[in-house]
Write a protein that binds this DNA or RNA. Structure first.
Lengths: 232, 232
DNA sequence: ACCTGAACACCGTTCAAGT
DNA sequence: ACCTGAACACCGTTCAAGT
């Protein structure tokens, strides 16, 4: 009778509790802190106890992705394909922003889980319901890529700037000298919001801009009756 | 005089030799096999000897990315922005396909190296030379995202099918039942090339389709005189 | 001053011993 | 039959001892 170290009676471990604890740990402490050992400790359990509920760490990560994907809003029925898909993707984005580790983990999964396939299947279905051909739907899904999950690969990850304004200035000058074109667009963006290189982008605007450009492109191809043999 | 275990006189270690050996090891044995210890062994050297040439494993990965990015063709001068950028990106793709680990490693870098910034700077410069506004260039770079490196996030990673054709059939039926829309597009693609779910996509076609859709969209915005305050 | 073996603080997971 | 401590086979990196 020494199994409860911290006095509180613990609910019996199950897969769901393990996954939720893993998500919480990744949210709070970062994905790099998530180890089977740390997770076990968090749950007041010996590391090997986890292996009763998840086969290994890979399955743990799969399960964590399922938890996150489960938070995405269900499709809104009775809407145009374009606004419906747009809403769904922006809902996915909202969820992803609450779990900053999730985009990276989604990308790392070698095999999609049923939950992931369900989500993708429903998005595919929304294009089909909007009248898209099987062929075109296939290709636009590829074009959407990871954006169906609400994220974009960041080309210029936001890097914390040196606090010292003098060093900031030096850094900026070096940028402008070596990478004039990058400096130019960074400058222009910074203008908008009293900000500087690296902190300058309104990520939500960039994301919506990209999604809308893609959806508009898809619409145009659809209206033109695009087929893979009749490439216009 | 016992330092040369394998008899052959080894060239003195330097950063370049370390990076090239790391790239070769990742190419041949997979990125998961690349450890400081394995790399050292490959070079006939004690693990700690590597730390004279790279500060740590993160810097090693940065250096490996630089080697790969260095293989991308320089810009072809005297062309239209659209074909120039298209060529450059397809060249990047060719390089990336020779180093399957590289896309994942590029994505994982928290800070871009000078070599990476040079490449991005040159792409930005190609848009600017094509007459794109600073503003529009900024946003289209975000839309391009990881595609400037020649890769797309795969939504359905090619999964090896069970060799047993009976199991294949069972798998297919389950797919068609649970994920009818996915099954439908997978089926259609498979039709084209006597292939099956998961092996069905012509990745090069999908990539070029996406890049062309994006470049066409960019061109349209440019011609329409798009600005972020005058969103059409 | 340079080089490097041993050690440290971790991993995920196996396995056999204990209940 | 179930549970779990110790052990295994790894990591990246520090550090002190050896030359």
């Amino acid at each position: 009778m020494v199994q409860q170290v911290d006095g509180a009676r613990r609910a019996p471990l199950n897969r769901d509790r393990v996954l939720r604890a893993a998500v919480a740990l990744a949210d709070n402490a970062g994905i790099e802190t998530l180890s089977m050992r740390n997770l076990a400790q968090e749950l007041g359990v010996v590391p090997m106890a986890l292996y009763k509920h998840v086969a290994n760490k890979e399955q743990l990560l799969d399960g964590m992705v399922d938890v996150v994907v489960g938070e995405i809003d269900p499709p809104v029925s009775g809407t145009d394909w374009k606004v419906g898909i747009r809403q769904r993707i922006l809902s996915a984005r909202k969820v992803l922003l609450q779990h900053p580790w999730a985009s990276r983990v989604i990308e790392s999964r070698p095999q999609p889980t049923p939950v992931v396939l369900d989500y993708l299947n429903s998005i595919v279905g929304m294009f089909r319901a909007g009248g898209f051909s099987v062929d075109l739907t296939h290709h636009v899904m590829h074009v959407l890529g990871s954006r169906v999950w609400g994220f974009t690969q960041e080309l210029f990850p936001a890097s914390p700037l040196p606090a010292d304004p003098e060093k900031q200035e030096a850094m900026f000058h070096e940028m402008a000298g070596r990478y004039p074109h990058i400096a130019e667009i960074a400058m222009a963006a910074a203008h908008d919001e009293a900000s500087v290189v690296g902190h300058s982008c309104d990520d939500q605007f960039e994301f919506e801009f990209a999604v809308d450009l893609l959806l508009d492109g898809f619409e145009r191809l659809h209206e033109q009756g695009w087929t893979s043999t009749n490439r216009s």
